[in-house]
């Protein structure tokens, strides 16, 4: 548990950080909460010559609601999001998801930006970010670009973030009246990560589901939208039978299923179906 040598920088502004990232290129990594990166370094699974610690940049940790958009700074911790009244009011799915990441210590250190860039296949945030159609702001020496959640996750532990880029902000558009939503997960007994996690957001018109989006994490090498379930339910009357039938397709859009000592592939697929049903019903109950 002893990391290899590295160079350490702690810039205080975004521009300074971007400058360092540009200067060191592929040799360099951003350090946010360190809850994924530091364990990997201590186990020497990864050796990083240069670390740019963005923890000293004050203006990366914020939650702002403005003109139908909620913007969250990349360094905002899971715990800060989970306990924010503004988030609870305007985008309760984010609060519900953040409150289920790891345990209190993890939530006090780990950041939304770090979790998204790390793209652990069992991380909680990707499910919510996909269900919310969020956007991610990436800054580099070449300027700024905005990436849709659906384009952001590329593969296991791989995102669209390029060397030299800093994730600065996550944006979610929030209607005046927030949509009903739920995040439900099965926590792995040792780590707390999601064996399966389902984020569902929907709009109802009486018993009819006007729109629905579902993000699934834990099952596949990367989080995905359960499009088959969404297609079956959008415009449909939600009752036990229809939700069950639709949720049975929760694993249909998974590129593959993961299995380990905690849960086999089959069982994970099964849990995705069970939890998709429960998440949709939990969201619908709030509508």
């Amino acid at each position: 548990m002893i990391p290899a040598n590295f160079e350490y920088h702690a810039p205080t502004t975004v521009d300074e950080a971007i400058g360092l990232l540009a200067q060191h290129g592929e040799d360099c990594k951003v350090l946010a909460g360190g809850h994924s990166l530091i364990p990997a370094m201590k186990l020497r699974l990864t050796q990083i010559p240069v670390l740019v610690d963005i923890g000293k940049i004050g203006d990366l940790s914020y939650i702002k609601v403005d003109g139908g958009t909620i913007s969250i700074g990349a360094m905002t911790t899971h715990g800060a999001i989970a306990s924010s009244d503004e988030v609870k009011q305007h985008c309760p799915l984010l609060a519900e998801c953040g409150g289920q990441v790891g345990d209190q210590q993890v939530r006090n250190r780990g950041t939304l930006g770090g979790s998204l860039v790390h793209a652990d296949p069992a991380a909680d945030w990707p499910a919510a970010i996909l269900a919310l159609n969020a956007e991610v702001v990436l800054k580099s020496a070449n300027g700024e670009r905005v990436v849709k959640a659906s384009d952001f996750f590329v593969d296991m532990l791989t995102t669209d973030v390029q060397p030299g880029e800093l994730l600065t902000e996550i944006r979610v558009s929030v209607p005046a009246q927030p949509k009903a939503s739920a995040y439900l997960k099965v926590a792995q007994a040792a780590s707390g990560f999601a064996v399966v996690g389902i984020a569902a957001q929907l709009e109802m018109d009486g018993d009819t589901c006007k729109s629905i989006s579902i993000g699934v994490t834990g099952l596949a090498p990367k989080a995905y939208r359960a499009s088959s379930v969404e297609a079956a339910l959008a415009g449909a009357t939600l009752d036990d039978a229809s939700v069950s039938a639709a949720a049975a397709k929760a694993d249909a859009d998974a590129s593959d299923a993961m299995g380990d000592i905690h849960a086999s592939e089959d069982y994970r697929r099964h849990l995705a179906r069970v939890y998709a049903k429960r998440a949709v019903q939990a969201a619908a109950a709030k509508a």
């Binding site: 364990p39 186990l43 345990d103 007994a189 040792a190 780590s191 990560f193 380990d260 000592i261 905690h262």
Partner: peptide
């Protein structure tokens, strides 16, 4: 296989 506490499940207070 259970070479780290991410896979070896010791009991935690909330469990």
């Amino acid at each position: 296989i259970t070479g780290e506490l991410m896979d070896y499940a010791v009991p935690k207070a909330f469990q």
